Amino acid sequence: MAAVNAPSGYSLVADIGGTNTRVALAKGQVLQQGSIKRFRNADFPGLETILRTYLEGEGIAACAGACVAAAGPVHDGVATMTNLDWTIDKPMLTRATGAGTAAILNDLQAQGHAIGHLAPDVLRPVIAAHGEANAPGPNAAKLVIGVGTGFNLAAVYDTAQGRLVTPSESGHASLPARTEEDLRLCTYLETIHGFPSVEDAISGRGLERIYDWLGQEAGDPAEKSAADIMAGANEGSDARGVKAVATFTRLLGSVAGNMALIHLPFGGIYLVGGVSRAFAPHFAAHGFTEAFRDKGRFAGFMQNFDVTVIEDDYAALTGCAHHLAALMDGAGAL
Rank of each mutant, 00 (worst) to 15 (best):
A285D: 15
E181G: 11
A66G: 13
I36P: 02
R240Q: 03
A278Y: 01
A226M: 14
P136Y: 00
T166H: 07
I202F: 06
A133L: 10
G194A: 01
D158W: 07
Y188K: 02
L317I: 03
M328S: 11
A26E: 14
Q303M: 12
I60D: 09
L175A: 00
H172V: 01
V147Q: 03
A316N: 10
A119E: 06
P45I: 00
T289F: 04
A333Y: 05
H113M: 05
F298T: 05
V309N: 12
Y10L: 10
A227N: 14
G241I: 04
A3M: 15
T97L: 07
P221V: 11
I16R: 13
I104Q: 00
T19G: 08
G137H: 09
A96G: 10
A14V: 12
Q161C: 06
R297Q: 05
A110I: 04
A3P: 04
H172M: 10
S11H: 11
T82F: 01
T166P: 11
N304M: 03
R209S: 08
T249F: 02
A280M: 05
L93H: 00
T249I: 05
D43G: 11
D200H: 09
R240T: 05
K90V: 04
A114M: 01
R40C: 15
V242I: 09
A61L: 13
A233W: 15
P176Q: 03
G194D: 03
D329R: 13
I50R: 12
A284D: 14
D15I: 03
T191R: 08
S203M: 06
A201M: 12
A62S: 07
L207G: 01
R209C: 03
L12H: 04
R95G: 00
A285G: 14
D312K: 02
G137V: 12
V165Q: 10
W213V: 03
T249D: 04
L93Q: 02
E169Q: 10
P125F: 14
V30P: 06
I115L: 08
P91V: 05
L105R: 15
M259P: 00
E180I: 06
S197M: 09
L261G: 05
G274I: 10
P136S: 06
R38E: 15
D313S: 11
F39C: 14
K243Y: 04
I115D: 09
A285W: 05
N41E: 06
G148A: 12
A227V: 04
I115H: 08
N234W: 14
T97H: 04
S168E: 07
G171I: 02
T187M: 00
F248Y: 15
D85W: 14
T159L: 06
A246D: 14
G77P: 01
R163N: 10
L25R: 15
D212S: 12
